[in-house]
Simulated scan of single mutants.
Amino acid sequence: MALKVGDIIPNFVSNDGNGNIFDVANYVGKKPLVIYFYPMDNTPGCTAQACSFRDQYQDFTDLGAEVIGISSDSEKSHEKFASKYKLPFILLSDNDKKIRKLFGVSAGLFGLMPGRVTYVADKNGKIVLIFDSMMATKHIPKALEAIKKLV
C-alpha cells in the first residue's frame, strides 16, 4: 500500500554507501527529510538527479533538512557513485527492495525499471509532499519548495 501525504514515514534501517548502519529513527523528530528513490547509480537520469541534489544540498541543509537517496544498488556501487560525483548526502542500499515496498514505490516504465519518487517529510516524519515522476531533475525544485514551506 502506497504512502500518502499526511502519513508518517515508516521506520527502516539500511546500510549506507560507507557501510554504516542508517536508522531513520535517528532523524525523525530532529529534522525534515527528503527521501528520494531512484532506479540505478550511474545512469544518465539518476546521475543528473543526484548531481542536482548535490548542487543544491547546501540549500537543503541551510533549511535544516537532510537528503537521502535510495536505490537497490549495492553499498559498493553507492560508494563509487558518491565518490565519482562528490555526493555529500546519504545513499542507502535497498537491494532486497524492502524499503521501496514499505513506501509503496511502484515500478515505473511498464514495470521494467524501479520508480523514481521523492518524499518530503516534516521533522516529525509526516509526509508533506510525494512527487512521482521519471523526470529526474524536476524532483529537486519540488522538494526544496516543500522544505521552504516547512521552515
Rank of each mutant, 00 (worst) to 15 (best):
K31T: 07
V24M: 05
K4C: 03
S83Q: 12
D16L: 03
G17S: 13
I70F: 12
N42T: 04
P10M: 06
K84Y: 09
M113D: 05
D96Y: 05
N42Q: 11
I9E: 00
A136T: 11
K138E: 06
V28Q: 05
L3K: 05
V120T: 02
K142N: 06
P32Q: 07
V24A: 04
D23S: 10
Y27S: 07
G125N: 06
F81M: 12
L87F: 08
V120G: 01
N42H: 13
M135P: 00
V67P: 14
D73W: 09
E75F: 00
H139W: 12
D16W: 11
K76E: 14
L33R: 04
P10K: 05
M135C: 02
V5Y: 03
G29R: 01
S14E: 10
A82L: 05
S83L: 10
A107T: 06
A143Q: 06
Y38F: 15
M113E: 09
L102Y: 15
T118R: 03
L87S: 11
G108V: 03
T137M: 11
Y27G: 00
N95D: 13
G115M: 05
R100N: 06
A146K: 00
I127N: 02
S93Y: 08
D59E: 15
S74Q: 09
D59T: 06
K80N: 13
K98F: 02
M113F: 06
L109M: 12
L150R: 00
G69M: 09
D16F: 09
L129M: 08
K142F: 01
S77W: 09
F60M: 02
I9F: 04
